[in-house]
């Protein structure tokens, strides 16, 4: 099976969107599920990525990812027409979609990508959607038009005020929660700290909040326990019990510590790869 890249688009400095052939996944995936991909068939890192959209008819899925470590850098270096090593999935529990009433969807940075299919499905189920999407700065904001198309109200924020309001996502979130009537529920997807503070905010107002966790994973099928987090005092495996959980129950501090376990080693792999790539460049010019 070949997991061919049908199209590739750079959404911001470090964020890429790819449509990849994966007919079996495209056929059975549901909103909220993810895949594990690798650029190499054999020894590559296994990268968990949310399925941002899928086209069952032509058999493709859309992946949006941020270039951070070696594996994602390598993936970003692939061109249209080339193939991924493999795509396995769909994994995880689908989002529970139903009519809640008014739903606040909060996305930060790359988190907008997994949030979009969920927000879209919620809209289709008849909910009123208020979206708050944010980024550090204008260049990093992704999917603004897509969110505008499905939201009843859209609030854009940036850390530096280069687009939308100069604020953290929690500011408008707090205002919306203070409205009367308050929203029926919230969904927050983004960096772990952002989700943590969103949950702190909504908790004050008793607005139930779902989060989608992106822990370190190995197999993605419940076999290794590397993705475990504490939810409501119990150990849960993100890949099989999640990736979505009741945000008010998640032990974020612990999760953030576990997520940074390999920072140094990952940095090392990235540097090696970049050095190697430079050398290839030199060979070609010489």
């Amino acid at each position: 099976m070949s997991f061919k890249i049908l199209s590739k688009k750079q959404l911001s400095e470090n964020v890429f969107q790819m449509d990849v052939m994966a007919p079996l996944v495209a056929r059975s995936r549901k909103a909220g599920q993810f895949v594990i991909v690798s650029v190499d068939q054999d020894a590559g890192e296994r990268i968990p990525l949310t399925i941002a959209a899928a086209d069952a008819e032509n058999g493709s899925i859309r992946l949006i990812f941020q270039r951070v470590g070696k594996a994602t850098t390598q993936m970003a270096d692939l061109a249209e027409g080339e193939s991924l090593g493999y795509v396995a999935g769909p994994l995880g529990q689908p989002t529970h979609i139903k009519k809640f009433g008014t739903v606040v969807c909060v996305g930060g940075g790359i988190g907008n990508a997994p949030l979009l299919p969920i927000a879209t499905a919620l809209k289709e189920a008849g909910n009123t959607i208020i979206s708050i999407i944010g980024a550090r700065t204008k260049e990093l904001l992704i999917l603004e038009d897509e969110f505008r198309a499905i939201s009843d109200e859209l609030i854009v924020v940036s850390d530096d005020g280069s687009c939308g309001r100069k604020a953290l996502v929690t500011e408008p979130l707090k205002e919306i929660c203070s409205r009367d009537p308050k929203p029926d529920c919230a969904i927050a997807i983004g960096p772990a700290v952002m989700m943590k503070f969103c949950c702190d905010t909504t908790k004050e107002f008793n607005v139930p909040t779902q989060v989608s966790l992106n822990t370190i994973m190995v197999d993605g099928t419940g076999m290794c326990g590397g993705c475990r987090v504490e939810v409501g005092g119990q150990t849960k495996f993100v890949c099989v019990d999640g990736p979505e959980f009741d945000g008010h129950q998640v032990n974020f501090d612990q999760m953030m510590r576990r997520m940074s376990a390999y920072k140094e080693l990952e940095q090392k792999a990235l540097e090696q790869y970049q050095k190697h790539q430079c050398k290839i460049g030199l060979d070609q010019t010489a």
């Binding site: 290794c224 326990g225 612990q254 576990r258």
Partner: peptide, 25 residues
């Protein structure tokens, strides 16, 4: 394929692996 943990304090710390994860890696 479902690793058992001891369910003791500290099992969520960085540096605690199931054997499955350690050996798979």
């Amino acid at each position: 394929g479902l690793p058992k943990f001891m369910n003791i304090d500290g099992e969520q710390l960085v540096g605690v692996y199931s054997a499955n994860e350690y050996l798979t890696r």
